[in-house]
Write a protein that binds this DNA or RNA. Structure first.
Lengths: 339, 339
DNA sequence: TTGTATGCGTTATCAA
DNA sequence: TTGATAACGCATACAA
């Protein structure tokens, strides 16, 4: 069964396609009688305008593309949830792709979205992504991009993220105020901005509270396999640093890996060693002990980024000038039994 | 900066749009010299064909729509992962929408996808969905649908799912063979097929092993809030059924809610009461005690459903006839410390 | 080997 | 008030 077109309606009513189109769009220069006839027939035939044709004419697809490093990831799921909700509210569709934390793949996905002629792009950069020429090229083509979560400050576009440095500072400060002194940090890869910022926040909290920063207490988790990274580095730490009394982990998944290792080795949490996570995944509220963490507003991040992106798309269409936004969403701590 | 079109290329080379088009598509009736010229210029100008125009001509959007009840859900995340991977391999994009377990909303989302002229639809039905006229209408319009996970057997289309009854039977049989006798079931809503099937598998396992089915041991979790449903019903069970020695829960999230309640009340798991989950979320391997569960192949389910859908799309285009597939993916048990 | 004409479905422009 | 025409960008049948 082929979809009904304006032509079908026009033919049946013995009018022109133009008139049918005008009637459906509520133009004033159509007589009431024809308008009614068109509207009725359209309803009867269940007419639904061909959005592809409209896209071709208007040069808009009412579709936005999203690229995230990983789909199966609670934080990004929440972000996508926010994106889809806001997009739908504004009549946009969402195409989702993942970069698998691979720079080349990220570039390819962007190309696909450009070929698809999406109206705008939301992207959280892969850990491998350092230079951002691929983004600049797209921006030059007047396709707006909004970076979220894993951003690059040098790209000239809007961004929605959290203050990772402050969030980490807050978490570590909490530990210090609780009396912990020898605090290790399980950090992420060396290049991503939020990995760097969380590390800086950790170091700043230490030094500002009169605790010497000791590089040997920083463990690198960059195998893109957080849970096991946490687990194996925790084993290492137990051997190398017996007098550590707390760990600030860059993600909850790493923290949960640490918990597993400690539980297996009879280390009491938080009595022997406290553990602080980051992101507040649901899991963290049900592990043993329950994990203290940083609340990162994923849904709101997705929602806000989408709102900004669609605003920019609209401004671009209206040729209204606009300036890029830098939105920093607030974070907070949730204290549970691991600290 | 406007995108380059065939017209631009043709103009610059003083040839017709047709020839440019043919050259790029590798038609044989183009001289080597012009072909080369076109190819070079296209590369130089970074030409990328306008897919919207192609969509309009070919009446294909190379896009499939996906509707799931909830985005923030580990199982569905895995399914989406499989869908996106297979779709991309075959050159298709994926638009994701969620029904929020609401029948009316599900219908609306389907309408949106139809307006968008997607080539096919993958859907896991909402718990509220009982009649499926909305799906039949779409199938009549020659837009293929593949149902997955939460299916309705009466719809005449391909389906990919697991044998919920057998999976539940296996889990409960395991409990019985372990020596548990008074086994409760925390079931899902009354209408969804997989909720019914898991219940039937539970009952069948009991009766086939000579244990009387006792309806008072079945607790209904239908508030669409699994974790809390599990938690509160576990409290109820502790009061009402002190001599239950095992629980088979319809989802891991419910099972984890049960664990929380039992841990808080000093109930030893599995000594006092064993707990069996369903779906094998990552969480289940890190809670205390670790949770036995049914492994449900989410990624493969998404991948396979997509493969079938795209096959049907292609057959439809070639006017090749085909028959609907009924794929039942295997499940298995993972035994941990809760049983 | 190349190009003209036509159409995909819609809408803006302009003439009737 | 209505409709013929053109255009969006591409691809095909057919003519040259």
């Amino acid at each position: 069964m082929k979809p009904i077109t304006l032509k079908d309606i026009a033919l049946e009513l013995n009018i022109s396609v133009t008139t049918a189109s005008k009637a459906l769009k509520g133009y004033s220069d159509v007589s009431d009688s024809t308008r009614l006839a068109v509207l009725n027939l359209a309803k009867k035939l269940n007419y639904s305008p061909n959005s592809v044709a409209i896209n071709l004419r208007t040069k808009q697809t009412k579709t936005i593309g999203v690229i995230i490093p990983t789909i199966v990831h609670q934080f990004f799921s929440k972000v996508i949830d926010g994106i889809i909700e806001e997009a739908e509210k504004q009549g946009y569709f969402v195409i989702t792709l993942q970069s698998n934390e691979d720079f080349e793949f990220e570039k390819k996905q962007l190309q696909l979205l450009m070929q698809k002629r999406v109206d705008g792009i939301l992207i959280s950069l892969s850990n491998q992504t350092q230079q951002c020429e691929h983004l600049n090229e797209i921006l030059q083509k007047d396709v707006p991009i909004v970076l979220f979560d894993k951003i690059n400050k040098l790209v000239n576009c809007s961004k929605v993220y959290i203050d990772d440095q402050k969030a980490a500072y807050d978490a570590v400060t909490y530990l210090i105020e609780k009396g912990y002194r020898r605090i290790a940090h399980f950090r992420g890869s060396l290049t991503p901005q939020n990995s760097i910022d969380r590390f800086l926040g950790y170091r700043k909290a230490l030094t500002e509270h009169g605790i010497d920063f000791d590089p040997s207490l920083v463990y690198l988790c960059d195998n893109n396999d957080d849970f096991n990274d946490g687990y194996t580095n925790a084993q290492k730490l137990l051997k190398e640093q017996p007098n550590v009394d707390a760990i600030f982990a860059i993600t909850d998944l790493i923290a949960v890996g640490i918990l597993k290792c400690f539980n297996e080795n009879g280390i009491k949490i938080p009595e022997d060693i406290a553990v602080f996570g980051f992101s507040d995944w649901f899991m963290s509220s049900v592990v043993s002990p329950t994990l203290s963490s940083v609340i990162q507003p994923g849904f709101e991040m997705g929602r806000k980024a989408t709102e900004i992106l669609i605003d920019e798309i609209k401004n671009l269409n209206n040729k209204t000038s606009y300036s890029f936004q830098n939105v920093i969403l607030p974070t907070s701590l949730v204290i549970r039994n691991s600290t």
